[in-house]
Design a protein around this nucleic acid. Sequence first.
DNA 1: TTGTAGGCGTTATCAC
DNA 2: GTGATAACGCCTACAA
Lengths: 345, 345
Amino acid sequence: MSNRSLNGPREDPAPANEPVTIGLVARAANVSRATVSRVMNGNTKVAPHLADRVRQAAQELGYEPSPVARSLALGRTGIVAMLVPDLGNPMFQGILHRLTEAAGDQNYRLLVADSNENLQEEPLLAIEARRRCDGLVLCAPRMPDEQLRELAPRLSPFVLINRELPESPAPTLTIDFSAGIRDILTHLLGLGHRRLAYLAGPDTSASNHARLETLRTSAGKEFDLVELPCGAAFADGHSVADQLVDIDVTAVIAYNDLVAFGVLSRLHELGISVPAQMSVVGFDDIEFVRYTTPPLTTVSVPLDQLGPQAWSRLWALMREVTVEPDVRFRPRLEVRGSTGPAPRD
Amino acid sequence: MSNRSLNGPREDPAPANEPVTIGLVARAANVSRATVSRVMNGNTKVAPHLADRVRQAAQELGYEPSPVARSLALGRTGIVAMLVPDLGNPMFQGILHRLTEAAGDQNYRLLVADSNENLQEEPLLAIEARRRCDGLVLCAPRMPDEQLRELAPRLSPFVLINRELPESPAPTLTIDFSAGIRDILTHLLGLGHRRLAYLAGPDTSASNHARLETLRTSAGKEFDLVELPCGAAFADGHSVADQLVDIDVTAVIAYNDLVAFGVLSRLHELGISVPAQMSVVGFDDIEFVRYTTPPLTTVSVPLDQLGPQAWSRLWALMREVTVEPDVRFRPRLEVRGSTGPAPRD
DNA sequence: TTGTAGGCGTTATCAC
DNA sequence: GTGATAACGCCTACAA
C-alpha cells in the first residue's frame, strides 16, 4: 500500500491550505484581483511598486493563473486537437511531432485523439475533441464524404488532412497518390517489369482507392496487374509475401512502407533476392525505410510538411485572417535498392 | 483568397446567432437551467415529460455542454497530459497509443507535450501541461534528480516513467536496463565474443548511464569493451558503423534499436555480413525490428504495458484510492538473426 | 421533483 | 492607474 496520498505533517499552520487563487494573491498584495490580473498578463500599465508587490506575493504563494478559468473567461483554450485513425501508424509520428512543435511555437498545446479505426465512434470523438479546444486537425480517411460534410459545421475551425473532400469547407492538405503511383509505374516499366502485384490497403481507405484506381486504369496495355488484399501493417506484408511467389510477378507495389517492409522481410526469409528476383516498392517514405536491406524504393510523401502546414492554416482560421491555399503534395519517387531490372527468365 | 470565413446568407432569421448555452435550452424547454443540467448529466431524477422536453430542445438547438465550463465548475478537466522528451522517437509511439487507449476507456483525453530534448524548457512545460489537466505522465529521463524532486509537488498527481528517482514521491515505472545488458552479455559471451563495442546514447540519458555502468563493471575479465559515442537515432548508428571495422570487435551493442538498425544498414552497405562477421544487438524491441534483415536480436522492453500501467496508477491517484506498487520491468532477451557465433578469425 | 442563487477562477468594462 | 462588478457556462447545495 502506498502512503503517497497521505498528507505529511502540515507545514503551513495558518492558512489551512487555501487554494491559491487570484483572490488570495490580491489580498496578500493588498490590491484588487483586477490588478493582479493586469500584472500577470502584462498588458495594461500598473504602478511599479504595486506590480512588484503583486509579483512578490504571487511568487511566495506559488500562484499561477488557472488555465481553465482563463479559457472560460477568454473564450479560448490555447489547445488544438488532432484526430488520427491509428496512433500506432508511424506515419503519424512525424505529423504529430511537427504539429506539436509548430503549435508550441505559438504557445498552443496539442490534444490527441485516436479513433483506433473505429468508424462508429469517430464522429463523436471528433466533436468532443473539437469542443475541448480552439481548433482541430482532422485525419479521417475512412469517413464517408457525406458524414464529414454534415459534421463540418460543428468542427470548424478545422483543417482536413490526407483525404479529399470535394468542395471542402475546410482547408485541405492532400497527397497526390495517383501521381505517386504513376511515378512508380514509369519506374517499374522502365526496368522491364510487365507483371505487377499491388498489395491493397484497407478497402475503406480513400488513399487505397486512389492508388487502386490509377493502377487499374493504367493496367492492361503495358502490364498486367494482380491485386492482393493485404492491409496496412508490417505483419500484413509479412504474411502476404508467400502468395507472391505463386503468382509469377516480378515486382510488388505495397500499399505503404510498413507493408513493403514486411514483404522485404518475408522474401528474405524465403530466400528470394530483392531486387534480383523481385522488386519491391513502398509508399510514404517513413523515416527508417532508407535503412532497410536493401533500402526501400518508395514514394516520398513530405510528411514533415504536413504538420506545419496544417498548423499555419489552422492558426490563420482561428485568427480569422486569410488562409493559405490548399495544397496537394506531389510525392517524389525515391529510387533506392529494392527495385531493379526485371529478371530475364 | 479563401472565402471560407465569410458568413453565408443568414439562415436563422430570429435569434441572431445566439450561442447555444444551457440557458438557451432552458428557455426553449421552459425549465430552469438546473433542470437542463440534471437531464444532461442524468444523475438526479427529473420528471419524464420535462426530461423529454429538455432533450428535444437540446437536440433541436444542437446543444452540448461546454467542457471548459464544466471543467471549471467540477474542478476536473477529464484530460491527462503526457510529457515526452522527443515525440520523434518511435519508442513513444506505442506508449502514447496505449495510454490514449487506456485513458479513453475512462473517457479521459490525452494532451501531449514534447520537450524536444530541451532541458531548459522542460520544467515549465511540465508544470504548464499539468495545470491544464488532472494528471500527468512524466517521461523526463534527462532531468536532474534534484530538479525533479522540487518540481514534484507542482506536478502531482503524476506518474514517472522510464527513469529512476530514489524515494520518488510518485508511482514509478522503470525498466531494468542493467538486467537487459546482463542478458545481452551472457548471450554474446556464450557465442564466443570477447571484444565488444557499445554505441553510447546521449550522455544526459539516465538509461544510457545504467547500461554503461553495467557494461563497465562487467568488462575486463571475460571481455574487452570499446565505447563509441553515438546517439539515439538511425542516422547516428548508420554513421558510426564505419568506425566498427577499425576497432576489431566481433559484436556491437547499440544504445537502442534505432541505432542498431542504422548499424545494420551501414554494415550491409560495407559488405560486412551480419552475423557471420559481426553480431549486432539492439535495445527496446520496437515493433519493426523483427522485420529487419537479419531480424534484430534485442532486448524486449514491454512498451505496450507502460501506457496502461501508467494510466491505472494515475487513475488511482486521481481518485485517491490505493495505487498499485511500482514496477520495474524485466526486459526479455529476444534472440533473432543478428547475432551468431564469433568469427573464428 | 423543480427552481433560486451562489460559486468555480479569470478577464474585461466600467466608473472613480 | 485602480477597484468594483459583471460576464464566461456550468454545477449543486439549498429552499420551495
